[in-house]
Write a protein that binds this DNA or RNA. Structure first.
Length: 601
RNA sequence: GGCGCUGUAGCUCAAUUGGUUAGAGUACCGGACUGUCGAUCCGGUGGUUGCGGGUUCGAGUCCCGUCAGCGUCGCCA
């Protein structure tokens, strides 16, 4: 039912079967081809494009109007659908078998000359241009496709959860600031001088309270806000499919999301996904890939050579191994010939500058299978043989070593692995790989503050077997926490929550939150946990990221209608902006000297 | 906050590495044209080379600062 008072067809619909009908179309002028006596106009709306002809048989008035038409004017055409003449149909166009002969033509609204035209496919304007004129950019087919894909993903998610008896509940946008985690976006209160709301970083606490309230299956398509620096896959405001269930263990949550992913893969991509999705522990992921969200579309795993390094005379390796650090490597199979010393030194610069590695050692495998390269002379023949076996080194391989702390070796080798995987095309970009990373550490140690931080959030439950040792060896404790990883992106993450107040207090204690502070910040949750909290847990999926990955995009902005720049600006509206002094006064806010002055009237 | 890339006509890019009048495609304006689908052909307008400073006989090009966009590290689940 796309008919309106102004149109009775859309520009994507007409086929040979409609020949003979008289139709009225509305849309934007997508392209004009003018032959004097005959003119072709391609008309575009959300549904497609249709060729319209204005020829000698068209009324004088229509021909006159057609003289003045320009790209992106909004027009309406009424005319008869005809089969295109022999040899003139266009197989590249969905509506290419037909065209509409103009009987009347009306300009609904002319357009200024657009800064760029949506019909142009090969030359994309710079991104600041696209963001400033977002309404033009959004007319482009790829942008339409990705917003429609995003819509279909969200709808498929809602449908799936609806089938599973989940209900969607909206939680507040104006909430309470919690210093945990990311920086908050703050909203000043007019009524309460000097006090602020915070925009939610996620609906975490509300959804747990919904569980206490007995709504045992909750979802929400929730907008979240984090005032941190941006990346290609991060925006300051983003959308989560937030989910929480009661009376569950890890397997229940994972199983539910397995089903969702199977449903999404089928309905969105037409792929039959095998479930349950594979699971790997955090420790194994760090060991094998150096990252908690590894791209499993290709191998090139990290190989630990620390024990061998401890036996060699090469001072760099020896010192690292003796000092309790690590010598790990990746083997880039068969590419040694493509890597000049210059190219290798670019990789070295990369690991030094981006990850603080002290250097990059390398070996290449010669024709005869021997390990060569500048450092090889420091190793005995026997030891080289051990390396060769360990590294599965065959002629033509390039082996890259990082000798450093565990953390740096993880980061640098993960960086190299990702970079080489892409450069060497070790995987098909069309491939989709879904997996779970599970059993994250409960805490990580903060050197600066000399204390433990919650790796996920402070409501995460430890594994049952780690409960006893939680106090004494918090660094060993693993959590009932899980991340969904798709193609090397963290697509979502969640945990089973602590529903026991005693355990919760213990965790707060380990995090250095004394009772008074904990009460002050989370008192309402602690109260709630004492009024009959069921065992519960859940997950939040990054909707923008899922849309990006499913759409085969490499940045999140291309599946968001109105995204912000790296400096969190909206180039179309000019947000953020100074505000009137009166507004500030009402909010009890004064600006520091020298900072941006309010706009005067 | 650090590192890197980019910024030249409305748009996308070029300019022989410091050389004299900054070009091309497209868009735009005018004209021709009855079967195009990136239409074609003829003619034309259009530039404070992001901004500010410096070096130089001479700067789009080199240096410093600054603004903006992107990528990335830190940061962030």
């Amino acid at each position: 039912m796309l008919n309106t008072k102004l149109r009775n067809q859309t520009c994507g619909h007409l086929r040979a079967e409609h020949v003979g009908q008289t139709v009225t179309l509305c849309g934007w002028v997508h392209a004009l081809r003018n032959f004097g006596g005959a003119k072709f106009m391609v008309l575009r709306d959300r549904y497609g494009i249709t060729q319209v002809t204005i020829g000698p048989e068209s009324p004088e008035a229509a021909r006159k109007i057609a003289e003045d038409l320009r790209d992106e004017w909004v027009v309406t055409v009424t005319g008869k659908v005809i089969a295109r003449p022999d040899g003139q149909s266009n197989p590249d166009m969905a509506t290419g078998e037909i065209e509409v002969i103009t009987e009347s033509l009306e300009v609904l609204n002319p357009s200024e000359t657009p800064p760029f035209t949506p019909s142009q496919v090969d030359e994309l304007p710079n991104e600041d241009m696209r963001l400033k004129y977002r309404y033009i950019d959004l007319r482009r087919q790829p942008m339409q496709d990705s917003l429609i894909l995003r819509h279909r993903i969200i709808k498929a998610m809602r449908d799936y959860f609806d089938d599973q008896q989940f209900i969607e509940v909206e939680t507040p946008i104006l909430g309470r600031s919690t210093p945990e985690g990311a920086r908050d976006y703050l909203v000043p209160s007019r009524v309460h001088a000097g006090e602020f709301y915070a925009l939610p970083q996620s609906p975490q606490i509300y959804k747990q309270i919904m569980m206490v309230a007995g709504y045992d299956r909750y979802i929400q398509v929730a907008r979240c806000f984090r005032d941190e620096d941006l990346r290609a896959d991060r925006q300051p405001e983003f959308t989560q499919l937030d989910m929480e269930m009661s009376f569950v263990e890890t397997d229940d949550v994972l199983g539910m999301i397995d089903g969702l992913m199977k449903h999404l893969a089928k309905t969105i991509l037409g792929i039959d996904l095998q479930i349950p999705l594979p699971r790997m522990t955090y420790d194994e992921a760090m060991q094998r890939y150096g990252h908690d969200a590894p791209d499993l579309r290709f191998g090139m795993e990290l190989i630990d050579c620390t024990d061998l390094a401890g036996k060699c005379e090469f001072r760099v390796f020896r010192a690292v191994a003796d000092g309790g650090n690590f010598v790990r490597a990746i083997n880039a199979k068969g590419v040694a010939g493509d890597f000049s010393r210059k190219r290798i030194s670019q990789l070295e610069t990369y690991v030094k500058e981006d990850f603080g590695a002290k250097g990059l050692a390398w070996m290449r495998v010669e024709e005869d299978g021997a390990l060569g390269g500048p450092i090889a002379k420091n190793f005995s023949a026997e030891l080289l043989e051990e390396f060769r076996v360990r590294l599965d080194a065959t002629p033509g391989d390039l082996v890259l070593f990082i000798a450093d702390s565990w953390e740096v070796s993880c980061k640098a080798l993960n960086g190299l692995r990702k970079r080489l995987g892409a450069e060497l095309e070790l995987y098909d970009p069309q491939d989709m790989n879904f997996s779970w990373i599970v059993e994250f550490p409960m805490f990580d140690y903060d050197e600066e503050q000399d204390g433990w931080n919650a790796m996920h959030h402070p409501f995460t439950a430890p594994r049952d077997q780690d409960l006893a040792g939680l106090k004494d060896t918090p660094g060993e404790a693993r959590a009932k926490a899980y991340d969904l990883v798709i193609n090397g992106y963290e697509a979502g993450g969640g945990t089973i929550r602590i529903h026991d107040n005693e355990v919760q207090q213990m965790v707060f204690g380990l995090l250095g939150l004394d009772e008074a502070t904990a009460r002050d910040r989370f008192g309402f949750l602690l109260d709630a946990l004492q009024f009959g909290a069921p065992p519960h847990g859940g997950i939040a999926l990054g909707v923008d990221r899922v849309a990006m990955i499913f759409g085969g995009l490499d940045n999140i902005r291309d599946c968001i209608a109105f995204p912000k720049t790296q400096r969190a600006m909206d180039l179309m509206t000019g947000a953020p902006s100074p505000v009137d002094g009166v507004q500030l006064e009402e909010l009890h806010i004064g600006l520091k000297e020298g900072e941006k002055e309010p706009e005067s009237e």
